[in-house]
Design a protein around this nucleic acid. Structure first.
Length: 236
DNA sequence: GCGACAG
DNA sequence: ATCTTGTCGC
């Protein structure tokens, strides 16, 4: 019994942007912002790669599973799909999740927690791609974004490696800005699904590999990129 | 009406 | 997201 049997088509394939935003508002109510996860033996990383001018409009998704606590890549799965819509700030999930689900399905052992490249609840309607994917799969997830979508650091983030400060929007704390390396732009961590913000930040810290990005997300990025390059000029 | 705007 | 080599700095 993993994930849920069937996902309503509307959750992934709305007819237009307005419908997509309504779906997000509804799905946001299903997000669990508290810890509801078991022991994490496999930590997952998720990312998608695009080719700016691919006439096919394909997205290449990768899901990697790393062992804990050594952070070794135990398995990698990838899949390509045609994006249903162009990139629209706030609607990223609808563009990337279909391909991610295909990749997820190819994985042998499923990760117990997913680190996703993008925001979780630090989103206008509380349903960034990390939260969206977590709800669709019903798997614990964490949002790890490289820039802000909404909100601001308050108070300003210190320069030291390891420093963190709240990400606030409209008076609400929606995440944590974390500087993983000195002189490197911070990462924005937020709750995806079934994890508290404290647990989310703790896992990002624990998944550090010496680079700005945590290992799961970094490895997924490399895998998705390699997939795209390999498939670049394939079948004739 | 004018900016801002994950990947 | 992606296009791209060297270069400045710890």
């Amino acid at each position: 019994m993993t994930g849920r049997p069937a996902v309503p088509a509307e959750w992934l394939d709305p007819s237009d942007p307005a419908a997509a935003r309504r779906v997000q508002a509804a799905l946001a109510e299903r997000v669990v912002r508290e810890d509801a996860l078991g022991e994490v033996r496999l930590l997952g990383g998720v990312d998608v790669s695009n080719n700016r001018f691919d006439p096919e409009g394909r997205v290449f998704a990768a899901v990697v599973a790393l062992s804990v606590p050594d952070l070794r890549v135990a398995e990698t799965a990838g899949a390509a799909a045609r994006a249903a819509m162009p990139y629209i700030p706030g609607l990223l999930g609808f563009r990337e999740i279909p391909a991610l689900l295909a990749a997820w399905g190819k994985l042998g052992a499923k990760p117990d927690l997913l680190l996703v490249d993008g925001h979780g609840v630090a989103h206008p309607r509380g349903l960034g791609i990390a939260a969206h994917l977590g709800v669709v799969l019903d798997v614990p997830s964490v949002g790890v974004a490289k820039s802000v979508l909404v909100g601001a650091e308050d108070p300003p983030l210190a320069d030291e490696a390891g420093a963190e400060t709240p990400l606030v929007w409209r008076g609400e704390r929606i995440g944590t800005a974390l500087r993983t390396r000195r002189r490197a732009n911070p990462l924005y961590v937020s709750v995806g699904h079934r994890v508290s913000l404290e647990t989310a930040v703790a896992w990002v810290r624990r998944a550090a590999g010496g680079y700005r990005l945590p290992e799961p997300t970094r490895q997924a990025h490399l895998a998705a990129n390699a997939l795209r390059v390999a498939e670049a000029g394939a079948p004739r």
